[in-house]
Simulated scan of single mutants.
Amino acid sequence: MSIEGNKEIARRLYEEVVNYGKAELLETFVADDSDDTTRQHAGWSIGRAGFREHLEWLRSAVPDVHTTVTDLVAEDDRVVVYWRIEGTHQGELFGAAATGKPIDATSISLITFRDGQIVNYTVLPDRLTILRQVGAVAAA
């Protein structure tokens, strides 16, 4: 798969899978032996099932989630995605119980591909901004 092809899958992961809940696309986009390193330490499944659990968790915490990819940088088999997340905090998120408050923050993801499928995913969300927005952490 080309660098541009990997970037397109990365973009579609956010625009179609996260925004519209099209979990069936994970069968195409994610290798069965993939690793979502963001969630593995939380006791979630590995492989494609872990991606599905991550998606379900996010969409239950923020049911009206909307992501916007603001930049993609790629080299070889890796794509770095800069993205914005917006929505309403309706379920447990980073240890904070639902508040009904809006969230608006940025994240950076590193996605590694093999043969046109995601084999590793790591996201670094701006948790502090989100936790401040929902009142779980006091503003400085």
Score class of each variant (00 low, 15 high):
F94A: 06
G135H: 04
R84W: 07
I85R: 00
R78I: 11
N19D: 07
E53R: 05
R78N: 10
A31V: 10
L13W: 08
D33Q: 10
G95V: 05
Y121K: 02
G91P: 07
V69F: 02
E56K: 13
R84V: 02
E56G: 02
L124Y: 03
E92T: 14
E24M: 03
T112A: 13
A97D: 12
E86V: 14
P102T: 06
L72Y: 05
T112L: 02
N120I: 05
E4F: 05
G87C: 11
A105Q: 00
I46K: 14
E15P: 02
V79T: 02
D35Y: 03
S2H: 07
I118Y: 11
S2Q: 12
F113L: 01
T112G: 11
V73N: 06
V62I: 15
V18N: 09
A10L: 04
A97F: 13
T112P: 06
I9K: 08
D36M: 09
E24W: 01
N19S: 08
K101N: 14
K22C: 01
L110R: 15
R52G: 10
V137A: 13
Q117P: 09
E53K: 05
V69T: 04
G5S: 12
Q90G: 09
H89Q: 13
A61N: 04
V30G: 02
T99H: 07
E16G: 06
S45V: 03
N6V: 11
I9G: 03
L58Q: 14
D77E: 12
H54D: 15
R59Q: 03
V123Q: 14
S109N: 06
E53V: 12
T70F: 02
H66Y: 11
Y82V: 04
T70A: 04
L26K: 06
A49N: 10
G95L: 02
